[in-house]
Structures are given as structure tokens and as C-alpha cells.
Design a protein around this nucleic acid. Structure first.
Lengths: 206, 206
DNA sequence: CTGTGTGAAGGCTTTCACAGCC
DNA sequence: GGCTGTGAAAGCCTTCACACAG
């Protein structure tokens, strides 16, 4: 399966489809048309169908898609079949909140450890997880073969921490720091910048 | 100025440029080349220049851009010249963290009120803001002419709350609920879905 | 007759190549 | 010489139109 051929945007939408399918599953719906699923995912039906053809033909003409089967195929494609361990670096305001956020576990990610320059912060409420000092970071990542990290450190140390993560073997970073991280080609970064999202909205309501 | 001509992606990148410019400003750098600014913003120099031409010519050939002037022009374009009041709906884990998050204020947004179905939660630590019951939402939005809202309610009530926001006059929503909101054409929604971002990363490290 | 699968067309963005100005 | 500004080309993604299967 040559996954390099699949457009980035398609991959992103696969997650949207998967989400929508989960809702259908909990409602015990067995079959869904591209029109219905597309609406739930916020895209056009033709786009949904086109996206799915990158992975094969799962639909039944005249009927639609089997929710269960399509759902399973998407987890395979996304690589979320087995639980993926993740670490979180920077247990400040945002970091702590994310540790308590149930959304990750629900989607198959387990935050296995958190790191902070001042690990004593952990007192402030059971986060349900150990907060380790930064000095333990490299060893932990290497030994546990961690591949994914959530980065919620201040912008001025983000690049430095990133370098350490990459040196230890991390391949994917979800970055909340308001900085463009410089990383080698084999490392993927997704940026979530809350202030920029607001700023962007602000443009459209002028 | 016909702003409808400007590509969405360009608008988004303007924020990145603005960010990078702020850093240069604090370092008292007066002039910057498209190459340097592009690197800081994570884009190609030609793209940066192309993006800027949508707003006019600010560069000096052979020299670069004046940091101060370009910076000012970008705030104008983005509509962040004056402080924009924002409300937050849903003061749970994530919502509370965002209330304490300094990033918004730093970029010119003031969260003027928070709303929650169970406003008593507010006790849990001074959030530095009143948490009002949902019953006060419509009146507040109307009276204060609020245009922007951050939505951090559970997915199953997100659409319902959205309808209320829109009916009261909100035009832009930063949505953290894992749902595609159905809104009229004159309303803008930006989605931030943390689980999907992780899922997306997971695909690329297979 | 309904709804998928898909080559082809269309539209949008990015990148190139180079003219133009300091 | 250095760096911006920009039409033109290339690339990418979305949408259309319709063949085809149940």
C-alpha cells in the first residue's frame, strides 16, 4: 500500500469520517450513504467518495457503506488500531488541562507520562499521572520507545525541548507553543495555535 | 479594499507573519528580508512575498521590509487593531484552562465573560472572571454586542449552544467540541480538535 | 431507481523565473 | 548586487458528469 500517494487533506478528513461513524455506531446504524456521512463530517458527498477510493471500494452501489466495516478500515489506515503511547511535556496551565482531558483516551491515545521543569507543580491536583523532571525525559523516551509527544512548554524553550525529543527518538509532535519548530524531514509536527485561530476569526467578522 | 479576493490560507499565514514580526520587534530589529521572515514563519520566501502583495507593496527592493510598518499593516488587515471582546462557553477542564491561558490577552483578545451550565464550578480557583449561568447567555451577548465565542462544551450540547449563540448575534466561533457545527453562511467557525490532530500524526509515523 | 466509483474538468495555491528598483 | 514584485507555469485538490452495480 503506497501511502505517500494519499493527499494530506484526505488523511485529515479520514479522522472526521471516523468520528462521524462512531456516532452512527453508538446509534446502532448499520449502513450510511455518502451523502449522510458527508454532511456529518462537513464535506461534500463527492469528496467523501473520492477520499475513500484511496483505500479501496467499500461501498455497495444503491445502498451505501457498512458502518462497521468502513470504521474498521479507517482505523487501519490511520494507524490507530493499537493504542499509541504519548508523553506530554510542559505541565503548566494548558498542559495540566490536557492531562485531565478525556478526549485523548477516548480516541485511543494514552498519555503515559508528563514532564515539567518544575515537577512539584503536580501537587496542585491529582492529574492521575506522574509528572517527572525534564532530566528524565531522554531516558524515558528512549527506553519506552515513545514516538509521539504533546508539547505545551513556553515558546522560548520549545525549540530546545523539541531537539531533545527528536534526539531521543520522537517522530511526531503536537505543538501548542506559538513558534514554528525546525525539525528534520522524518519528523512530523502539527501546530495548534489558539491565539492564531482567534485572530483568523477576527478577520472574517470585520 | 476587496478582502474577498484574499485566499483563506493567506489570511491564516498573515497571523504567522505577525507573530514572527513581534519577536523581531522585541529584539529591536528594524528590517527583515522575505527570506528571514519566511523561515521564522515556516513558509517559502516567494509565498510570503506573494501573500503580502494582496495588501500592497511594503518592501524596499534590495533591502527588505520595515518590521514596524509591516507589523502595523498586518494588524489592520487582520482586524486586530482594537481589542475584541470574546466570551467562553463551557467552563469544564479545557474551558477553565483556556481562561487561565495568557496567550489570548497577549494577542489582543479579552475574554469578558464565561458561561457554564453549572456555574458553581467557578469556585475551584479564581479564574479571574465571573462564570455565569447559561440562562444569562443570550442577554449578555446581545447587550454587549459580542461577536466572538470560544466553545468548550461537550459535543452533545454543542449544536444547541451554537444555535443560541448565533441567535443572539455571535458571528465567529472557535469550536473545541468534536462535532461539525451547522451554521448559516454569515457565521464563521474554526475547529480545534485535539484528538484528531493526534490521530493525524499517528498516520504519519506508521 | 438509488447511490457508489472515477476519469476529466475546473479552480485554487504554490512555485518559478525574471523584470524592476534601491 | 541584493532583494522585492509579479505574470506565467506547475501542482494539487475539489467538483462535475456520468458509467455502472445492486
Amino acid at each position: 500500500m503506497q501511502k505517500l500517494v494519499i493527499p494530506r487533506k484526505t488523511v485529515y478528513r479520514l479522522s472526521l469520517y471516523y468520528r462521524a461513524l462512531q456516532r452512527l455506531r453508538t446509534n446502532n446504524i448499520e449502513t450510511v450513504s455518502s451523502a449522510a456521512l458527508a454532511t456529518a463530517a462537513g464535506v461534500k458527498p463527492t469528496q467523501l467518495r473520492k477520499d475513500l477510493t484511496y483505500f479501496g471500494n467499500f461501498g455497495t452501489r444503491g445502498l451505501g457503506y457498512n458502518v462497521e466495516a468502513l470504521s474498521r478500515r479507517l482505523t487501519e489506515a490511520l494507524g490507530t488500531t493499537q493504542l499509541q503511547p504519548v508523553i506530554l511535556v510542559g505541565a503548566g496551565n494548558l498542559g495540566s488541562a490536557l492531562l485531565r482531558y478525556p478526549g485523548f483516551a477516548k480516541e485511543g491515545f494514552e498519555v503515559v507520562a508528563a514532564f515539567d521543569a518544575k515537577p512539584l507543580r503536580s501537587r496542585e491536583k491529582e492529574l492521575g499521572i506522574k509528572v517527572l523532571p525534564m532530566t528524565k525525559l531522554a531516558q524515558f523516551v528512549t527506553e519506552q520507545r515513545i514516538k509521539m509527544a504533546i508539547l505545551t512548554v513556553p515558546g522560548n524553550v520549545a525549540q530546545e525541548v523539541t531537539n531533545e525529543l527528536i534526539a531521543s527518538g520522537v517522530l511526531a509532535i503536537l505543538n501548542f507553543a506559538p513558534i514554528i519548530l525546525q525539525v528534520p524531514d522524518n519528523v512530523v509536527v502539527n501546530n495548534v495555535d489558539l491565539a492564531i485561530e482567534l485572530e483568523n476569526l477576527s478577520y472574517f467578522i470585520q
